[in-house]
Nucleic acid binder design. Sequence first.
DNA 1: CCAAAAGTGTTTATGATACACCCATGA
DNA 2: TCATGGGTGTATCATAAACACTTTTGG
Lengths: 229, 229
Amino acid sequence: MVYKYDLEDKVLLAVDCIIFGFDEEDLKILLIKRDFEPQKGNWSLMGGFLQKKENLDQAANRILYHLTGINDIYLEQLYTFSEVDRDPAERTISTAYYALINAKDHENVLSSDFSAKWFSISDFPDLIFDHPEMIEKAMKRLRRRVSTKPIGFELLPEKFTMRQLQKLYEAILGTPLDKRNFINKINSLDILVKLDEKDMSSSRKGSYLYKFDTEKYQQKISEGFSFKL
Amino acid sequence: MVYKYDLEDKVLLAVDCIIFGFDEEDLKILLIKRDFEPQKGNWSLMGGFLQKKENLDQAANRILYHLTGINDIYLEQLYTFSEVDRDPAERTISTAYYALINAKDHENVLSSDFSAKWFSISDFPDLIFDHPEMIEKAMKRLRRRVSTKPIGFELLPEKFTMRQLQKLYEAILGTPLDKRNFINKINSLDILVKLDEKDMSSSRKGSYLYKFDTEKYQQKISEGFSFKL
DNA sequence: CCAAAAGTGTTTATGATACACCCATGA
DNA sequence: TCATGGGTGTATCATAAACACTTTTGG
């Protein structure tokens, strides 16, 4: 016998994605002009609806791919927003996800075919519904996460300089950090590889490039190491 | 003009509550025998369905009140579980909440009218669906939260001894703590009031009772104080 | 030769941990 | 008087924070 919950209310379940990027200076979010009613033409997070055949993680990935062409990035569920009037068109619950991408690597993907645009986290346009609240919550989560998991690296290209890494952390935490202390701390974690290669674009002297060592990190994790920055 | 998202799939949205309690020794969770199909008669978290007219917080409170008679307790959204097959009866998404209650104060409420029962967090029966996963996640969250917010006090009666508080933290963190260091740390936070009253039930000497000072805590928070234990 | 960013260690302060004895009381 | 849990402080260790000068090289 197959049971059903026939008497219960069903609702629309949306997924909205806060996509963070970093461009050497500023933390950014990716927004899109909504192309359907209500609020067509206004700025919005990347969103869509959960389909019956997929779970929320899959929906978030699908929506992201569909709206930006971006695939296979760090994505984490944030919170489910459920105010009765949050969407004036119809009762809609929305589970927010936040994502981290390396903006450089996806520049081409994000080109003209898609109407998504980057905005500084400290200066973005008015958004529909409760999207500003979602961003605020994502920002808080990112700030906490970044000091207990090395997710910051998701926002950088594969090879990066210490200076870039520091600027990223400063942008996320919203506070300046001491150069020497920062480098000492990072080095003491022992999860980066220093390359024999220099980035000559930022100074005459050039600065060494580093790579995040995923294997070493996994190794350390399995030995009970805990990331703390 | 009123817009509708007519072509999108609608789903059932459930709410499941992990209710933590503490009984001087052990951290406990409140479970219930499910009284509807499928899996009728099996142990389950407190659950129900979101109704159109309420948000998730309200639904969690309503469900809790309906199943246990308990009202007005600490309740926090945890995560939304959405595996396609999580409920074999029908596609159902579930947002999990966790709650902290002082078991003593609610003993009577929880009496025979309700079929809810306390189980030790380290020894509870098989549960339906993905409920074990929910509990695990709630446990992890509780462990983290308890060291950045004074939510532990929600699990204790209004007046409590230092020993009780310590045992609670030990139960939550799963590790023994040093008595002197613990008391020093708590005292340095300066958010408790030591009463002139002693609890004589646990020893001949008796131990002083304390109260959590909500006002002082709020005061400190507004001054930028951050709880860290 | 100089402007601009990179690289590099030590000292100090703060917080965390380890640790052991006396006290009060009812039985 | 003794068994039981309650209460108390200090020394050490580890981590965090403050801090300034030298190096490189393209223009």
